[in-house]
Simulated scan of single mutants.
Amino acid sequence: MAGTILVLNGPNLNLLGEREPAIYGTATLADIEARCRAEAAAQGCTLEFRQTNAEHEMVAWIQAARTGHAGIVINPAAFSYAGYPVLDALKLVDCPVIEVHLSNIHRRDEAWRKNSIITQAVTAIVSGLGADGYVLAVRHLASR
């Protein structure tokens, strides 16, 4: 399916490659973006790739994309646990949404990391596959 896939990244993901590489890996967000763009292009899709530390900006992007997209890939990061405005915005989206986490959130030491509220509004979840999770999500959405 040709179309546009929106990839959204939440707080602190701009520091990938530097931030806790033992947990999140050494790939930077630019590395992940390049891989996602290559996958989308190979599938005949276009890609919009964004990152924000501001919840209101994430909500605005989701609202603007609520119709007419092939799909949304979102790594909500810390919005996963308290981002109710992000959750509410995702509930308005008419395309498939895949939630991606670099680490396996269910194996993390902090109990609060295991409970993503965003999961209530998404089509699927990819957790623990590192940067590959983004590419797989883009591939899946492009093939729909």
Rank of each mutant, 00 (worst) to 15 (best):
D31C: 02
A27F: 02
Q120S: 15
N104I: 06
N14S: 05
Y81K: 13
E57R: 11
C36W: 00
A131I: 00
K114R: 15
E18Y: 03
I105F: 07
W112F: 13
A121K: 08
A121H: 04
G25K: 06
C45R: 05
E20N: 09
P85W: 08
L129P: 01
Q63W: 12
R113T: 13
A42G: 13
I23A: 05
E57V: 13
W61N: 10
N14Q: 09
Q43H: 07
E48S: 10
V93G: 09
G128L: 08
A40G: 03
V59D: 14
L47D: 00
L129V: 03
Q51V: 01
T119D: 14
A22I: 05
L16H: 05
H56K: 08
P96I: 02
E57W: 09
R108I: 04
A27E: 13
L29Q: 09
A54T: 11
Q51P: 14
N75P: 06
A30S: 07
A77R: 10
A54L: 08
V93L: 08
N53L: 02
H56L: 12
R113Q: 15
T26A: 13
L29C: 07
I74V: 15
G128D: 05
A38V: 02
A77K: 13
A77D: 12
M58C: 15
D31A: 01
V59P: 14
R66T: 04
G17C: 02
M58W: 12
G128R: 04
Q120Y: 14
E39F: 02
A70Y: 04
E48K: 08
I118W: 14
C45Y: 01
E39H: 08
D109H: 10
R107A: 15
C95P: 12
G44I: 06
E55L: 12
A77M: 12
A42I: 01
A131P: 05
F79T: 00
A131H: 00
C95V: 04
I74T: 06
L47P: 03
T67P: 00
E110H: 08
E18N: 07
M58N: 12
A77W: 09
A30L: 05
A38K: 02
I98G: 06
A124I: 01
S80Q: 08
G83L: 10
A77N: 14
V100A: 01
R50I: 08
A65T: 02
T28L: 07
T119A: 15
F79L: 14
A89Q: 08
L15R: 06
D109T: 09
G44Y: 03
P85D: 11
I32M: 05
A60L: 10
C36F: 04
Q43K: 12
T67I: 01
M58I: 09
A65S: 15
A65P: 02
V97A: 06
R35A: 01
S127P: 03
S116Q: 10
D109N: 11
